[in-house]
């Protein structure tokens, strides 16, 4: 029989399974607030320190040692907020090893933290913002175009599966593997990322054909022609100016077309 216990263990309350702490709630909820303290001077440095604060409090066991942690970790930090969990787990692992086993020094921890943050920043932003979000949202919108309720639910499940996998799962991977977590996470990322990149292009193709065919069925080549003009206009405006301007001008141009159609 598996023995699960809710208890206080060093950093805060959490769940023990068979005597091993598996869910540390005091760290987990802080992971979700990492980017909350973003500022121009330290970027997410305040947030990073805030997440690991319970660990530093436990390891310092006194004010003087805490100053050492402040000096080393309350500084500039900039990475993807979701992939950051692996870095936080890895840093916690290394700090604990430094205290217990004493096989690493502070300079090593600093260099690993800097390297991981720059590697994870580019990969994380690309995976979550450029691939996963457009892919899942496009699928959800296709469902809603056909009057199906569950588009947003599919979107939330699909997106948050990867979100939690890397946010919560990534923290524990980092905690278990230390600095070696980068190989595991990037291996996973490469496997999923390659498939997702093709999938987002495929789904964009499906969405484009649905939009143009529905336009043709509704109003023939006139609507399709207008569609081509609008697509070209949005792409040009977005390249020349900004996203919001291209969308807002596109929206009002479409409204104008609908009004003119009615008046004729």
């Amino acid at each position: 029989m598996v023995y699960i216990r809710f208890s206080y263990f060093g950093y805060g309350f959490g769940f023990y399974v068979e005597g091993v702490a598996i869910i540390n709630l005091n760290i987990i909820w802080r992971l979700f607030l990492l980017q909350n303290l973003r500022n121009e001077r330290l970027s997410d440095g305040l947030g990073f320190f805030f997440v690991l604060l319970p660990v530093f409090k436990k390891l310092s066991r006194g004010n003087d040692r805490m100053k050492d942690y402040i000096r080393r970790h309350l500084n500039y930090y900039n990475s993807n907020p979701i992939f950051s969990s692996c870095i936080i787990g890895a840093v916690q692992n290394m700090e604990e090893r430094k205290e217990d086993v004493k096989d690493i020094d502070v300079e090593y921890i600093r260099s690993i933290k800097d390297t991981l943050s720059s590697v994870m920043a580019a990969r994380g932003d690309y995976f979550f913002e450029v691939i996963l979000l457009p892919l899942t949202l496009t699928i959800a919108c296709i469902f809603t175009i056909y009057g199906l309720y569950f588009g947003p639910i599919i979107f939330l499940i699909f997106y948050n599966y990867y979100h939690f996998k890397f946010r919560v799962g990534g923290y524990y991977k980092g905690l278990n593997l230390g600095e070696n977590v980068v190989n595991l996470i990037l291996g996973q990322y490469l496997r999923i990322g390659r498939f997702m990149t093709a999938a987002v292009a495929f789904v964009a193709g499906v969405f484009t054909s649905i939009v143009f065919i529905r336009g043709y069925v509704f109003g023939g080549f006139r609507v399709v022609g207008w569609g081509f003009l609008l697509v070209a206009g949005v792409i040009w405006l977005r390249r020349k100016y900004s996203v919001r301007l291209s969308v807002i001008l596109g929206f009002f141009a479409t409204v104008l077309l609908i009004v003119i159609r009615q008046m004729r």
Partner: peptide, 11 residues
């Protein structure tokens, strides 16, 4: 019918 063309442009 008309507004999704903007979405195609942004995609």
């Amino acid at each position: 019918i008309f507004l999704p063309f903007i979405g195609v442009g942004s995609l």
